[in-house]
Design a protein around this nucleic acid. Structure first.
Lengths: 351, 351
DNA sequence: GTGAAAGCGCTAACAT
DNA sequence: ATGTTAGCGCTTTCAC
């Protein structure tokens, strides 16, 4: 059993050194795993460490180094499954390399995003994984550039010339959604999104439109894009339907949009898929247990996190070269919320 | 505009000092807002700070202090709305007091929980907000006690004699659920939960049972408690229904249980509320947009976070006295998933 | 192989 | 009011 100096001041490297009868420098070497220490001494150090319950103070240790072994992660929010999983993944990957992840939420505010980045710079983090609120051209990326910070951009980005980027292959996934909807016979489709998320929304919209028009030149694609915020989107959507528009399917480009669409369907008494079909970008656990289950594009969180960290550490360890942009393939899960127009679904809905 | 030493080594307190023609100590005082500095000098310091883009290194600054201005937060997971909101709240509250929140996920593992705590101790955090995997008696709380760490326990706890605790008033909320279900005429109710979360589950179950039996002594309450993990719960639930049991309502004591219940209903082709009613502890955004909307107990995240931080900082600032246990009142949202047995719901479900 | 010395960037006592 | 001194706990030359 290790005896600890409970409640007391924690043992420092000097305590260990004197107990082991060596210098602090030697203890430091043993802790760092340097092999040039006489086995006998190493043994005594290890014993002292055990007896005193000594542990290296990571912050003090980092003081002397150039970069601290801390990775900063900035997400637009923590409340959704996607970003929750992302943080969990990033945390694990950082840990594996002996780094600590410090995560912060920009709460969908670019101003706050920049403040957090400044704080992370103060902390002299080794690198940052930034999921920007809008896109790769925000003030945060600017700040990172201006201050020579090393970082990787993820999610709401396409590519950048200063930083590596990793995101879901929005265009390809959207094209697949288009194929599915067209194949089911949909010829009037509404796409909803948030203009704020510029590049990503563009990619998703273009990917969808291009594929859809190619397969069915006569398809009508309406677009409701709110510039900013979920509530304005709700209002615009309500207005759109109030005009009497009656698409047979809705493709939502982001999770909150899917929720808004569902709640607008509720208001009007429409059921999926009989009255209207629905597919959303971003999957969530609940989508497979509701009736009907909601079709969704599943983003490969693990791959995004993995490749982001890979790229980040490559840069931290001095990797040079032009910024690379990765697109990770998504899976499209066509569930019960999608049907064919004019064909009542069997099973679930009607009783 | 501030001129920064872009890319270069960041300005240190000495750079500022020499540029302002004062000593580092004076700069330190100015930065700390000490008023005993001659206005003229303070002015020059501020100018130098501006010109060099100087910012205090919070870690270096903390080296000299007893406690570091870091708060650790340990959550069982980041993927659910509840803990996501919790982290967001805690982050904001820590920030307000000039502290940085470092959040970590124990991934529902007590072993990992303890490891993280040890790491936080290494970091010499000023305090910890711990949402334990099981309850207040786990190895993590033990570790905190043994090492004289200051902390607050939240969520899956009731009370403790070593640490302040803050959690939802599970018993009261469950009693309200019982009242609602009994009032609707339910006399055969299934409660599902996770035994792991001992104290909390007990409180929820007892609160429910006591209230229900008081109002309707003839009520039959079945209980399916998996000891550990969601999948075993699913299996037990399946077995329960396979026996031909047919309660008119299900009360799930935690979010994942609600999802499992819904998916089991799906398997059997049961709809809420006509075939069976459902209420779950823990609300989520999607629950109000599905059809039917799912009834839920809403935990007061802000209050829990707020009071937890209040208690924590009181201790950090030397507050003595016996540990207090706070219970925060919940709201119960009875939505469409709850009906009366034998009475078909109007509107939504049938078409 | 090992230890003494010199800091990392900052703050807190103590003089002045 | 300000500067000097002495570290916080650690790592890292660089002699020995």
């Amino acid at each position: 059993m290790a005896h600890r100096q409970d409640q007391q001041r924690r043992a420092s490297i000097h305590d260990v050194a004197s107990r082991a009868g060596v210098s602090a420098a030697t203890v430091s070497k043993v802790m760092a795993g340097v092999i040039t220490v006489k086995p006998e001494n190493a043994q005594r150090v290890l014993e002292a460490v055990e007896q005193l319950g000594y542990r290296v103070d990571p912050l003090a240790s980092d003081m002397r180094r150039a970069k601290r072994r801390i990775i900063g992660a900035i997400m637009p929010e923590f409340e959704s499954e996607f970003f929750g999983q992302m943080v969990t993944q990033l945390e694990g990957l950082a840990e594996q390399r002996g780094y600590t992840l410090v995560a912060a939420s920009s709460r969908e505010s670019e101003a706050r995003e920049k403040e957090i980045l400044a704080r992370m710079h103060d902390w002299r983090v080794a690198g940052v994984v930034l999921a920007p609120v809008r896109n790769e051209h925000g003030p945060a990326a600017e700040f990172m550039k201006a201050n020579g910070m090393t970082g990787v951009l993820i999610d709401r980005v396409l590519s950048d010339d200063a930083f590596d980027t990793v995101s879901a292959d929005s265009a390809a996934a959207s094209a697949e959604v288009a194929r599915e909807l067209i194949a089911k016979g949909h010829r009037h489709i509404l796409v909803v999104g948030l203009g704020e998320q510029a590049a990503t929304v563009r990619a998703r919209l273009d990917g969808f439109r291009t594929a859809a028009l190619k397969l069915a030149p006569d398809v009508r694609i309406d677009v409701v894009l709110a510039e900013t915020g979920v509530e304005p989107l709700r209002a615009q959507l309500r207005e759109y339907f109030a005009k009497g528009e009656r698409p047979t399917a809705v493709y939502s480009l982001f999770l909150k949009g899917t929720l808004v669409a569902l709640s607008e369907f509720r208001r009007r008494g429409w059921h999926c898929p009989n009255d209207i079909s629905l597919v959303g970008f971003d999957d969530a656990e609940w989508m497979q247990v509701t009736w009907p289950a909601i079709a969704a594009v599943v983003q490969p969180v693990r791959q995004i996190a993995g490749h982001a960290m890979e790229a980040l550490f490559a840069r931290i360890e001095g990797g040079e070269g032009p910024a690379i942009a990765r697109l990770e393939p998504c899976r499209v899960l066509m569930r019960e919320s999608v049907g064919s127009p004019g064909v009542a679904a069997g099973g679930g809905q009607s009783r």
